[in-house]
């Protein structure tokens, strides 16, 4: 028997498609940290686990449509971004989007002086309101831990253009942070 750690994602997916539900488990264990990490950069603390779970439920539902034309991790990133966008659509329907950051701030313990948490809230808001292309290049480097040459390859671009895009993205992030009330 081949050890689980060396079985490729594609092989696990193939087995899942053939009805072996157990093959989902190693796939989940392999990718849950990456999904959770990406989600925590853009979704409020209290909802990170829920959104991560929604991503994997979506994986289970749509894995049969995955044809292996792109890497599973790339497909999963797209699905994660879609679920994060869906989370914000639902949330904005339920409440005035201008009040959303206040709702998140209310989760802070009374009299909390947790500057790191406040900083995270500010950065999440700034990241969430950025153009997708800018947010993506920052998340690929920071949350997914990709090197710049890998990001360039992933985006179908060259290294210089990717570095330039990254700089513009960081400038946009800074501007968003400065414009926050």
């Amino acid at each position: 028997m081949i050890p689980r750690s060396v079985v490729s994602d594609e092989h696990l997916i193939q087995r899942f498609k053939q009805g072996d539900l157990d093959s989902f488990s190693p796939l989940y264990e392999r990718h849950v940290h990456a999904v959770h990490n990406r989600v925590r950069y853009v979704v409020p603390e209290a909802d990170v686990e829920d959104v991560t779970q929604e991503v994997f439920i979506a994986v289970l539902k749509s894995l049969h449509t995955f044809r292996g034309e792109s890497q599973f991790s790339t497909w999963l990133r797209t699905l994660t971004n879609y679920k994060v966008a869906e989370y914000y659509r639902k949330r904005n329907r339920k409440q005035d989007p201008r009040e959303a950051p206040i709702a998140e701030a209310e989760l802070l313990p009374d009299g909390s002086n947790d500057l790191q948490l406040e900083e995270r809230i500010a950065l999440r808001r700034a990241l969430s309101s950025m153009p997708e292309k800018y947010r993506e290049v920052i998340l690929l480097r920071f949350s997914d831990g990709m090197q710049f040459d890998e990001i360039a390859k992933n985006m179908g671009s060259n290294l210089e253009s990717t570095k330039s895009l990254f700089r513009r993205a960081v400038a946009a992030l800074r501007k968003n942070l400065e414009n926050q009330p």
């Binding site: 950069y41 900083e119 995270r120 950065l123």
Partner: peptide, 8 residues
């Protein structure tokens, strides 16, 4: 970038 790294 430092703020981002420290916050997360």
């Amino acid at each position: 970038l430092l703020r981002l790294k420290r916050a997360f």
